[in-house]
């Protein structure tokens, strides 16, 4: 049985841990085994990479070293962490001078990057377990209209993510449809949530988010399903501001893929901490009769 090193990441681990709770429960049902490691920040592919690419490479490579030392692949719960760890691997494996430079720095702390382990986004691990997921569904989510938002860094840049079609992603939709829910199509499915630019220019982040939400509203979604904590936060915390600033109601509940699966596998909303969401899920819970 493969055991993965769990990379929960800063946002899930230290801000919205209820997502980790749902994820661990779903993994347990599916016999996906994980163990912990003292990983640092990944670090953020839109943050530290923009600040100092060498620091991004060095910290990322050190995290990879920790998993390499145990000879285990990493399973990541976050688009950003997966993007960084796979991106660092890609740059170091394809650029020998970068690899030499980073390994020189790592040698000063007694480590060496070899490139022996793989980094997997949890969506890709779940995708390979479609049959098992299907067999574990006890509560069919029939009648629930779900808009899927996989987020940019799950599939782009395709050169190093190697996960899905970069502009017409399908994996999240396919997994969600296993629950019996109605996956709805909408315009701009591959569009960004606006999270990264929001930090520097709030108004532009909000406009991008609005474009996305307007399309989702128009398509008649009851809920938005995501697989990235940064997107989750952007959707869950910013809708109230949009409502205020644009005088139009934005109040669509968000579910992380593993929360959705947990519900479909018969777990209760309380058990997985759905009460910690900002946008209330009452409408979803009612519709499903939970």
């Amino acid at each position: 049985m493969t055991e993965y090193k769990m990379f929960e990441g800063c946002t899930i681990g230290n801000r919205i841990p209820f997502i980790e709770a749902a994820s661990r429960k779903v993994f347990e049902k599916l016999n996906i085994q994980t163990s912990q490691a003292p990983f640092s920040c990944c670090p953020d592919p839109t943050g530290m990479k923009s600040f100092d690419n060498n620091a991004w490479l060095a910290i990322g490579a050190r995290n990879l070293c920790l998993a390499e030392e145990e000879n285990k692949d990493i399973i990541s719960l976050c688009n950003g962490c997966t993007n960084t760890l796979r991106g660092v691997k890609h740059q170091l494996n394809h650029d020998s001078s970068k690899k030499e430079r980073i390994n020189l720095e790592l040698s000063k702390i007694g480590r060496e990057y070899k490139g022996t382990i793989d980094v997997k986004h949890f969506v890709d691990v779940l995708k390979d377990k479609s049959d098992e997921i299907k067999n574990l569904i006890t509560k069919h989510l029939t009648g629930l209209n779900i808009a899927c938002h996989p987020g940019c860094h799950y599939m782009r840049p395709s050169e190093w993510m190697e996960s899905d079609d970069p502009m017409r992603p399908m994996n999240l939709k396919e997994i969600v449809s296993l629950t019996g829910a109605n996956v709805i199509n909408y315009d701009v499915e591959a569009l960004c949530c606006g999270s990264a630019v929001h930090n520097a220019y709030e108004e532009y982040g909000a406009l991008i988010l609005k474009e996305k939400l307007d399309a989702i509203k128009k398509a008649g979604a009851d809920v938005i399903c995501v697989n990235c904590p940064a997107c989750f936060q952007q959707f869950d915390t910013q809708q109230r501001n949009l409502t205020k600033n644009f005088e139009k109601e934005y109040n669509i509940p968000i579910l992380y893929l593993t929360e959705l699966l947990a519900l479909a596998m018969g777990m209760s909303p309380d058990e997985i901490g759905l009460k910690f969401h900002r946008v209330r899920l009452n409408s979803v819970i009612e519709k499903l009769g939970l």
Binding site: L191, G194, Y204, I208
Partner: peptide
């Protein structure tokens, strides 16, 4: 410089 939200769409297209 800082307007980019790093969505990586341009790289793909």
């Amino acid at each position: 410089i800082w307007g980019c939200t790093v969505c990586d769409t341009c790289d793909e297209l």
